[in-house]
Structure formats: structure tokens, C-alpha cells
């Protein structure tokens, strides 16, 4: 079973979760997925998603730190 950890700054609504799970299930078609939700206020806004040893960080915090490194 593949663990998917989803962190967000505010709690996600059920419809948002459903949408997210649906699109992820499409991406990982063959595998059985387990979704773990987590609230991380330090993300400021947006989502971060970790699958296995990979992190997809789409939070405002990550954007800001990318911006800071580009300046």
C-alpha cells in the first residue's frame, strides 16, 4: 500500500479531498493508496504532498523560499 501524506495550512473540505484523491488515484492507477491528512500552519497557504521519499511542495512557504533564493 502506498502512503500519501497530504499537508495543508487549513483543513480541507470533503469535496476538496475527494477531488484530490480522485486525481491521485488516476496517477497511481495500479496501486492501493492510503491518504493521511495533516494540518501544518507553517505552510501559510497551499498544499504539500509527499509520496515515498519525494515531496511535491505547492505551499506558499515553498514559493517564498524559492523566490528568496532567486533574488
Amino acid at each position: 500500500m502506498l502512503q500519501i501524506n497530504i499537508a495543508s495550512s487549513i483543513p480541507l473540505s470533503d469535496s476538496q479531498k475527494k477531488k484530490l484523491e480522485g486525481s491521485l488515484q488516476k496517477k497511481y492507477q495500479k496501486e492501493e493508496l492510503q491518504f493521511n491528512y495533516q494540518i501544518k500552519e507553517e505552510l501559510i497557504a497551499g498544499l504539500s504532498l509527499s509520496v515515498g521519499g519525494k515531496l511535491y511542495d505547492a505551499s506558499l512557504r515553498a514559493r517564498l523560499s524559492q523566490l528568496a533564493s532567486k533574488i
Partner: peptide
């Protein structure tokens, strides 16, 4: 430049 990247984490 600010796109979401796939990064290795532990």
C-alpha cells in the same frame, strides 16, 4: 522559476 518541483526528502 517558481513551479512545484519534485524534491527528495527523508
Amino acid at each position: 522559476d517558481l513551479s512545484v518541483e519534485r524534491i527528495s526528502v527523508g
